[in-house]
Design a binder for these strands. Structure first.
Lengths: 150, 150
DNA sequence: AATGCAATTGCAAATCATTTTCAATTAGGA
DNA sequence: TCCTAATTGAAAATGATTTGCAATTGCATT
Protein backbone atom coordinates (compact mmCIF):
# COMPACT_ATOMS: atom_id res chain seq x y z
CA UNK A 1 0.00 0.00 0.00
CA UNK A 2 2.42 2.68 -1.24
CA UNK A 3 1.74 6.42 -0.97
CA UNK A 4 1.04 8.22 -4.26
CA UNK A 5 4.37 10.04 -4.06
CA UNK A 6 6.28 6.80 -3.80
CA UNK A 7 5.01 5.44 -7.06
CA UNK A 8 7.55 7.14 -9.35
CA UNK A 9 10.25 5.77 -7.05
CA UNK A 10 8.86 2.29 -7.28
CA UNK A 11 8.85 2.47 -11.03
CA UNK A 12 12.37 3.85 -11.25
CA UNK A 13 13.71 1.20 -8.93
CA UNK A 14 12.39 -1.63 -11.06
CA UNK A 15 13.47 -0.16 -14.39
CA UNK A 16 9.87 0.54 -15.32
CA UNK A 17 8.75 3.68 -17.09
CA UNK A 18 6.10 6.05 -15.88
CA UNK A 19 4.38 6.67 -19.18
CA UNK A 20 1.45 9.00 -19.73
CA UNK A 21 -0.83 6.00 -20.02
CA UNK A 22 0.29 4.59 -16.69
CA UNK A 23 -0.07 7.98 -15.05
CA UNK A 24 -3.56 8.28 -16.43
CA UNK A 25 -4.59 4.84 -15.24
CA UNK A 26 -3.24 5.60 -11.78
CA UNK A 27 -5.32 8.76 -11.77
CA UNK A 28 -8.45 6.88 -12.76
CA UNK A 29 -7.89 4.24 -10.12
CA UNK A 30 -7.15 6.81 -7.44
CA UNK A 31 -10.13 9.00 -8.18
CA UNK A 32 -12.63 6.19 -8.43
CA UNK A 33 -13.04 4.57 -5.07
CA UNK A 34 -14.72 1.59 -6.60
CA UNK A 35 -13.79 -1.88 -7.68
CA UNK A 36 -13.55 -1.47 -11.40
CA UNK A 37 -13.20 -4.10 -14.03
CA UNK A 38 -10.71 -3.64 -16.84
CA UNK A 39 -13.30 -2.59 -19.38
CA UNK A 40 -14.66 0.15 -17.10
CA UNK A 41 -11.19 1.42 -16.36
CA UNK A 42 -10.59 1.46 -20.10
CA UNK A 43 -13.76 3.48 -20.71
CA UNK A 44 -12.91 6.00 -18.02
CA UNK A 45 -9.36 6.38 -19.29
CA UNK A 46 -10.46 6.74 -22.90
CA UNK A 47 -12.34 9.91 -22.02
CA UNK A 48 -9.04 11.64 -21.32
CA UNK A 49 -6.86 9.77 -23.78
CA UNK A 50 -8.94 8.41 -26.63
CA UNK A 51 -5.92 6.58 -28.01
CA UNK A 52 -5.30 4.37 -25.03
CA UNK A 53 -5.85 0.71 -25.76
CA UNK A 54 -7.48 -2.02 -23.74
CA UNK A 55 -4.30 -4.07 -24.06
CA UNK A 56 -2.40 -1.30 -22.30
CA UNK A 57 -4.97 -1.25 -19.54
CA UNK A 58 -4.51 -4.94 -18.95
CA UNK A 59 -0.74 -4.68 -19.17
CA UNK A 60 -0.64 -1.75 -16.79
CA UNK A 61 -2.93 -3.43 -14.30
CA UNK A 62 -0.64 -6.42 -14.32
CA UNK A 63 2.37 -4.22 -13.64
CA UNK A 64 0.63 -2.26 -10.90
CA UNK A 65 -0.46 -5.46 -9.31
CA UNK A 66 3.05 -6.88 -9.43
CA UNK A 67 4.30 -3.72 -7.72
CA UNK A 68 1.65 -4.05 -5.05
CA UNK A 69 0.02 -0.78 -6.09
CA UNK A 70 -3.32 -2.25 -7.07
CA UNK A 71 -5.12 -5.38 -5.97
CA UNK A 72 -7.05 -7.75 -8.12
CA UNK A 73 -10.31 -9.27 -6.96
CA UNK A 74 -12.86 -11.77 -8.14
CA UNK A 75 -16.01 -10.29 -6.73
CA UNK A 76 -18.85 -12.06 -8.45
CA UNK A 77 -19.82 -15.52 -7.25
CA UNK A 78 -19.23 -17.12 -10.63
CA UNK A 79 -17.78 -14.16 -12.41
CA UNK A 80 -15.06 -14.39 -14.96
CA UNK A 81 -14.34 -10.69 -14.80
CA UNK A 82 -11.57 -9.38 -12.56
CA UNK A 83 -11.91 -6.20 -10.56
CA UNK A 84 -9.17 -3.81 -9.54
CA UNK A 85 -8.66 -1.21 -6.84
CA UNK A 86 -5.78 0.68 -5.29
CA UNK A 87 -4.15 -1.40 -2.61
CA UNK A 88 -5.38 -0.51 0.85
CA UNK A 89 -5.71 -2.01 4.27
CA UNK A 90 -6.89 -5.57 4.38
CA UNK A 91 -10.59 -5.63 3.69
CA UNK A 92 -13.17 -7.97 2.30
CA UNK A 93 -16.27 -7.84 0.17
CA UNK A 94 -19.92 -8.63 0.43
CA UNK A 95 -21.95 -8.81 -2.78
CA UNK A 96 -25.70 -8.51 -2.75
CA UNK A 97 -27.17 -11.22 -4.94
CA UNK A 98 -30.26 -9.13 -5.47
CA UNK A 99 -29.05 -5.66 -6.40
CA UNK A 100 -25.40 -6.41 -7.11
CA UNK A 101 -24.10 -3.80 -4.71
CA UNK A 102 -20.65 -4.48 -3.29
CA UNK A 103 -20.00 -3.59 0.33
CA UNK A 104 -16.47 -3.39 1.65
CA UNK A 105 -15.82 -4.35 5.23
CA UNK A 106 -13.04 -5.08 7.65
CA UNK A 107 -13.15 -7.88 10.14
CA UNK A 108 -10.87 -8.62 13.03
CA UNK A 109 -12.47 -12.04 13.30
CA UNK A 110 -11.39 -12.97 9.82
CA UNK A 111 -7.84 -11.90 10.57
CA UNK A 112 -8.02 -13.94 13.71
CA UNK A 113 -9.27 -16.89 11.70
CA UNK A 114 -6.23 -16.59 9.43
CA UNK A 115 -3.86 -16.58 12.37
CA UNK A 116 -5.62 -19.50 13.92
CA UNK A 117 -5.39 -21.49 10.72
CA UNK A 118 -1.74 -20.59 10.24
CA UNK A 119 -0.93 -21.93 13.66
CA UNK A 120 -3.14 -24.94 13.38
CA UNK A 121 -1.70 -26.11 10.06
CA UNK A 122 1.77 -24.60 10.44
CA UNK A 123 1.41 -22.62 7.28
CA UNK A 124 1.88 -19.04 6.26
CA UNK A 125 -1.15 -17.03 5.13
CA UNK A 126 -0.07 -14.27 2.78
CA UNK A 127 -3.47 -13.07 1.73
CA UNK A 128 -7.14 -13.68 2.42
CA UNK A 129 -9.71 -13.34 -0.33
CA UNK A 130 -13.07 -13.27 1.38
CA UNK A 131 -16.22 -12.76 -0.62
CA UNK A 132 -19.54 -13.07 1.04
CA UNK A 133 -22.79 -13.20 -0.88
CA UNK A 134 -26.28 -12.67 0.34
CA UNK A 135 -28.88 -9.96 0.56
CA UNK A 136 -28.08 -6.45 1.64
CA UNK A 137 -30.14 -4.60 4.23
CA UNK A 138 -32.30 -3.02 1.55
CA UNK A 139 -33.00 -6.24 -0.31
CA UNK A 140 -33.43 -8.50 2.73
CA UNK A 141 -37.04 -7.55 3.36
CA UNK A 142 -37.97 -7.96 -0.28
CA UNK A 143 -36.30 -11.26 -1.17
CA UNK A 144 -35.65 -13.75 1.59
CA UNK A 145 -34.29 -16.55 -0.60
CA UNK A 146 -32.96 -17.33 -4.06
CA UNK A 147 -31.32 -20.39 -5.51
CA UNK A 148 -30.45 -20.18 -9.18
CA UNK A 149 -29.75 -17.72 -11.93
CA UNK A 150 -31.53 -16.77 -15.19
CA UNK B 1 -26.05 -30.87 0.35
CA UNK B 2 -28.42 -33.66 -0.78
CA UNK B 3 -27.77 -37.35 -0.20
CA UNK B 4 -26.94 -39.39 -3.34
CA UNK B 5 -30.31 -41.16 -3.18
CA UNK B 6 -32.20 -37.90 -3.22
CA UNK B 7 -30.75 -36.78 -6.50
CA UNK B 8 -33.20 -38.61 -8.79
CA UNK B 9 -36.00 -37.07 -6.73
CA UNK B 10 -34.55 -33.62 -7.12
CA UNK B 11 -34.37 -34.06 -10.85
CA UNK B 12 -37.87 -35.39 -11.16
CA UNK B 13 -39.30 -32.58 -9.09
CA UNK B 14 -37.84 -29.91 -11.31
CA UNK B 15 -38.77 -31.59 -14.57
CA UNK B 16 -35.14 -32.37 -15.28
CA UNK B 17 -33.99 -35.63 -16.77
CA UNK B 18 -31.42 -37.94 -15.30
CA UNK B 19 -29.56 -38.78 -18.46
CA UNK B 20 -26.65 -41.18 -18.74
CA UNK B 21 -24.32 -38.22 -19.11
CA UNK B 22 -25.57 -36.61 -15.95
CA UNK B 23 -25.34 -39.88 -14.07
CA UNK B 24 -21.79 -40.30 -15.27
CA UNK B 25 -20.77 -36.81 -14.25
CA UNK B 26 -22.29 -37.31 -10.82
CA UNK B 27 -20.24 -40.49 -10.51
CA UNK B 28 -17.05 -38.72 -11.48
CA UNK B 29 -17.71 -35.90 -9.04
CA UNK B 30 -18.61 -38.28 -6.23
CA UNK B 31 -15.63 -40.55 -6.69
CA UNK B 32 -13.10 -37.78 -7.00
CA UNK B 33 -12.82 -35.95 -3.72
CA UNK B 34 -11.02 -33.08 -5.36
CA UNK B 35 -11.86 -29.68 -6.72
CA UNK B 36 -11.92 -30.37 -10.41
CA UNK B 37 -12.12 -27.91 -13.23
CA UNK B 38 -14.49 -28.53 -16.13
CA UNK B 39 -11.78 -29.79 -18.47
CA UNK B 40 -10.58 -32.36 -15.95
CA UNK B 41 -14.10 -33.55 -15.29
CA UNK B 42 -14.52 -33.84 -19.04
CA UNK B 43 -11.34 -35.91 -19.36
CA UNK B 44 -12.37 -38.24 -16.56
CA UNK B 45 -15.84 -38.66 -17.98
CA UNK B 46 -14.58 -39.29 -21.50
CA UNK B 47 -12.78 -42.41 -20.32
CA UNK B 48 -16.13 -44.04 -19.67
CA UNK B 49 -18.16 -42.31 -22.33
CA UNK B 50 -15.94 -41.17 -25.18
CA UNK B 51 -18.86 -39.40 -26.83
CA UNK B 52 -19.59 -36.99 -24.02
CA UNK B 53 -18.97 -33.40 -24.96
CA UNK B 54 -17.40 -30.55 -23.06
CA UNK B 55 -20.53 -28.50 -23.63
CA UNK B 56 -22.54 -31.13 -21.81
CA UNK B 57 -20.10 -31.02 -18.94
CA UNK B 58 -20.56 -27.28 -18.61
CA UNK B 59 -24.31 -27.51 -18.98
CA UNK B 60 -24.56 -30.29 -16.43
CA UNK B 61 -22.37 -28.48 -13.95
CA UNK B 62 -24.61 -25.47 -14.25
CA UNK B 63 -27.68 -27.59 -13.58
CA UNK B 64 -26.09 -29.40 -10.65
CA UNK B 65 -25.04 -26.10 -9.22
CA UNK B 66 -28.53 -24.66 -9.59
CA UNK B 67 -29.89 -27.71 -7.75
CA UNK B 68 -27.38 -27.21 -4.97
CA UNK B 69 -25.73 -30.55 -5.71
CA UNK B 70 -22.33 -29.18 -6.63
CA UNK B 71 -20.54 -26.02 -5.65
CA UNK B 72 -18.48 -23.82 -7.88
CA UNK B 73 -15.26 -22.23 -6.67
CA UNK B 74 -12.64 -19.83 -7.90
CA UNK B 75 -9.58 -21.25 -6.24
CA UNK B 76 -6.64 -19.60 -7.91
CA UNK B 77 -5.77 -16.05 -6.91
CA UNK B 78 -6.14 -14.68 -10.42
CA UNK B 79 -7.49 -17.75 -12.10
CA UNK B 80 -10.09 -17.72 -14.78
CA UNK B 81 -10.85 -21.40 -14.38
CA UNK B 82 -13.74 -22.51 -12.18
CA UNK B 83 -13.53 -25.56 -9.96
CA UNK B 84 -16.35 -27.85 -8.91
CA UNK B 85 -17.02 -30.25 -6.07
CA UNK B 86 -19.98 -32.01 -4.55
CA UNK B 87 -21.72 -29.73 -2.08
CA UNK B 88 -20.68 -30.43 1.49
CA UNK B 89 -20.49 -28.73 4.82
CA UNK B 90 -19.27 -25.17 4.76
CA UNK B 91 -15.56 -25.16 4.25
CA UNK B 92 -12.91 -22.92 2.83
CA UNK B 93 -9.72 -23.23 0.87
CA UNK B 94 -6.08 -22.41 1.25
CA UNK B 95 -3.92 -22.46 -1.87
CA UNK B 96 -0.15 -22.74 -1.65
CA UNK B 97 1.41 -20.19 -3.96
CA UNK B 98 4.52 -22.30 -4.19
CA UNK B 99 3.36 -25.83 -4.91
CA UNK B 100 -0.25 -25.14 -5.84
CA UNK B 101 -1.66 -27.59 -3.32
CA UNK B 102 -5.18 -26.82 -2.13
CA UNK B 103 -6.00 -27.44 1.51
CA UNK B 104 -9.59 -27.56 2.67
CA UNK B 105 -10.42 -26.36 6.13
CA UNK B 106 -13.30 -25.44 8.36
CA UNK B 107 -13.31 -22.47 10.67
CA UNK B 108 -15.72 -21.53 13.38
CA UNK B 109 -14.13 -18.10 13.48
CA UNK B 110 -15.05 -17.42 9.90
CA UNK B 111 -18.62 -18.44 10.56
CA UNK B 112 -18.59 -16.18 13.56
CA UNK B 113 -17.24 -13.37 11.40
CA UNK B 114 -20.17 -13.83 9.02
CA UNK B 115 -22.68 -13.65 11.82
CA UNK B 116 -20.97 -10.61 13.25
CA UNK B 117 -21.07 -8.86 9.89
CA UNK B 118 -24.69 -9.80 9.31
CA UNK B 119 -25.65 -8.20 12.60
CA UNK B 120 -23.42 -5.23 12.21
CA UNK B 121 -24.71 -4.32 8.75
CA UNK B 122 -28.19 -5.79 9.07
CA UNK B 123 -27.70 -7.98 6.08
CA UNK B 124 -28.11 -11.63 5.30
CA UNK B 125 -25.04 -13.71 4.45
CA UNK B 126 -26.02 -16.62 2.26
CA UNK B 127 -22.58 -17.91 1.45
CA UNK B 128 -18.94 -17.24 2.25
CA UNK B 129 -16.25 -17.77 -0.32
CA UNK B 130 -12.96 -17.73 1.52
CA UNK B 131 -9.73 -18.36 -0.27
CA UNK B 132 -6.48 -17.93 1.54
CA UNK B 133 -3.15 -17.93 -0.24
CA UNK B 134 0.28 -18.37 1.19
CA UNK B 135 2.86 -21.06 1.71
CA UNK B 136 2.00 -24.48 2.99
CA UNK B 137 3.94 -26.13 5.78
CA UNK B 138 6.24 -27.88 3.33
CA UNK B 139 7.02 -24.79 1.29
CA UNK B 140 7.29 -22.34 4.18
CA UNK B 141 10.87 -23.22 5.05
CA UNK B 142 11.99 -23.01 1.44
CA UNK B 143 10.36 -19.79 0.26
CA UNK B 144 9.53 -17.14 2.84
CA UNK B 145 8.24 -14.46 0.46
CA UNK B 146 7.03 -13.86 -3.09
CA UNK B 147 5.41 -10.90 -4.78
CA UNK B 148 4.74 -11.39 -8.46
CA UNK B 149 4.18 -14.08 -11.05
CA UNK B 150 6.08 -15.20 -14.18
C1' DA C 1 -44.92 -51.86 -25.12
C1' DA C 2 -45.67 -47.98 -28.34
C1' DT C 3 -46.33 -42.65 -28.68
C1' DG C 4 -45.29 -37.83 -28.29
C1' DC C 5 -42.90 -34.06 -27.04
C1' DA C 6 -40.06 -31.23 -24.39
C1' DA C 7 -35.56 -31.73 -22.31
C1' DT C 8 -31.05 -32.88 -23.60
C1' DT C 9 -27.15 -33.84 -26.45
C1' DG C 10 -22.97 -33.30 -29.71
C1' DC C 11 -20.93 -30.47 -32.74
C1' DA C 12 -19.36 -26.26 -34.38
C1' DA C 13 -19.45 -21.64 -34.19
C1' DA C 14 -19.89 -17.72 -31.09
C1' DT C 15 -18.74 -15.02 -27.07
C1' DC C 16 -16.19 -12.88 -23.36
C1' DA C 17 -12.21 -11.69 -20.85
C1' DT C 18 -7.56 -11.57 -21.25
C1' DT C 19 -3.00 -12.16 -23.55
C1' DT C 20 0.28 -11.94 -27.16
C1' DT C 21 2.63 -10.63 -31.52
C1' DC C 22 4.90 -7.14 -33.89
C1' DA C 23 6.26 -2.97 -35.82
C1' DA C 24 6.36 1.77 -34.40
C1' DT C 25 6.95 4.97 -30.56
C1' DT C 26 9.05 6.89 -26.43
C1' DA C 27 11.05 7.44 -21.60
C1' DG C 28 14.91 8.51 -19.47
C1' DG C 29 19.88 7.47 -18.53
C1' DA C 30 24.48 8.21 -20.85
C1' DT D 1 20.94 15.05 -28.01
C1' DC D 2 21.49 9.97 -28.70
C1' DC D 3 20.65 5.28 -27.76
C1' DT D 4 18.30 1.44 -26.42
C1' DA D 5 15.24 -1.19 -24.02
C1' DA D 6 10.62 -0.56 -22.27
C1' DT D 7 6.17 0.47 -23.84
C1' DT D 8 2.43 1.17 -26.89
C1' DG D 9 -1.74 0.39 -30.32
C1' DA D 10 -3.91 -2.59 -33.39
C1' DA D 11 -5.11 -6.90 -34.58
C1' DA D 12 -4.84 -11.58 -34.12
C1' DA D 13 -4.55 -15.35 -30.76
C1' DT D 14 -5.82 -17.75 -26.71
C1' DG D 15 -8.52 -20.05 -23.08
C1' DA D 16 -12.66 -20.71 -20.68
C1' DT D 17 -17.33 -20.93 -21.20
C1' DT D 18 -21.74 -20.47 -23.80
C1' DT D 19 -24.98 -20.97 -27.51
C1' DG D 20 -27.59 -22.29 -31.98
C1' DC D 21 -29.32 -26.02 -34.15
C1' DA D 22 -30.64 -30.38 -35.79
C1' DA D 23 -30.69 -34.99 -34.06
C1' DT D 24 -31.52 -37.85 -29.95
C1' DT D 25 -33.68 -39.51 -25.81
C1' DG D 26 -36.04 -39.56 -21.10
C1' DC D 27 -40.14 -40.25 -19.32
C1' DA D 28 -45.10 -39.29 -18.60
C1' DT D 29 -49.00 -40.84 -21.00
C1' DT D 30 -51.57 -43.90 -23.71
Amino acid sequence: MPAPEDIPQIFQTTGRRLTSQRRLLLEVLTECHDHLDAETIYDLAKRRDPNISLATVYRTLKVLKAEGIVQERLLEPDGQKHHYEMAANAHYHFTCLECGQVIEFESALIEQACHELAERLKLDVAHARVNLDGHCADCTQLAPMSEDGP
